[in-house]
């Protein structure tokens, strides 16, 4: 049977009428409807983050035009969290870019986190004097910029980048010691690892512990253990 619909009551009705299995087209149509709407409410200017991480964030994602500071010791999972945020941007058909400092980002890990690699350019070998200029330039045209923050970053630069982020409606994911205020602070507090025994098995993801702090986060939700697939 062929079902045809007219959409007399706006997109919401139309969406409900689509067969359930067309999740993907439903999502795209949802996006298209959102873009076509004349007025965008503040609450809708959110980059939706899928999965357990998104469920813990206020509004189910990251507000556009804000800075997300991600911090944690090496191996605690900060890079993985940043990749998940970048994956949210590329999954929505947008672009994400990264600014890399010392230790290289794992391209394969980014792909495993769901990042579309052809829409995820990485800027390398950034001289200290140019760091802020490069991040500012990227914010001009890319929806989500994953910038590793060097120890020499100045508060003034950070404030300027915050202003640029707000003005452009982009998302700045600052990985490392962000020296200014941030709308959302995620602190990676280590990961559980499964599958690895004493001389046997192979490494597999377990839960990841994250502290979430920022406006709109309920106090009892500040600490979360996020399950990871794989």
């Amino acid at each position: 049977m062929r079902i045809e619909h007219t959409f007399p009551y706006g997109p919401a009705v139309a969406l409900a009428a689509l067969p359930r299995r067309d999740e993907r087209s439903r999502e795209h149509l949802d996006n298209a409807a959102r873009h076509a709407r004349p007025v965008v409410l503040a609450g809708e200017r959110v980059l939706t983050v899928p999965g357990p991480l998104g469920a813990r964030l206020p509004g189910g994602g990251v507000r556009r035009g804000t800075v997300v500071a991600v911090d944690g010791d090496p191996g605690a999972g900060a890079t993985g969290i940043a990749f998940e945020l970048a994956a949210a941007a590329t999954a929505a058909g947008e672009w994400a870019a990264a600014v890399e400092l010392g230790a290289g980002l794992g391209g394969l890990a980014a792909a495993e986190a769901g990042v579309e690699l052809d829409r995820f350019p990485v800027v390398r070998r950034v001289p200290p004097a140019r760091w802020a200029a490069v991040v500012a330039a990227l914010l001009e045209g890319i929806s989500l910029v994953l910038a590793e923050v060097p120890g020499y970053a100045r508060t003034a630069d950070a404030r300027r980048l915050t202003a640029r982020t707000r003005e452009r409606g982009a998302v700045l994911v600052a990985v490392g010691p962000w020296p200014a205020a941030a709308a959302l602070r995620l602190r990676a507090a280590g990961s559980e690892w499964r599958g690895l025994g004493v001389g046997e098995g192979v490494l597999a993801h377990g839960d990841r512990r994250v502290h979430v702090d920022g406006r709109g986060v309920a106090p009892r939700e500040r600490f979360a253990a996020l399950a990871r697939a794989g």
Binding site: W95, P121, R124, R130, A137, G141
Partner: peptide, 23 residues
């Protein structure tokens, strides 16, 4: 938009400074 920005960053840091990963 992204292409323009990346060309600009390449202008600042040189051609090989902006890369994408290919598995």
């Amino acid at each position: 938009r992204a292409g323009r920005v990346l060309a600009r960053v390449q202008g600042m840091l040189g051609h090989p400074a902006v890369v994408t990963a290919v598995p």
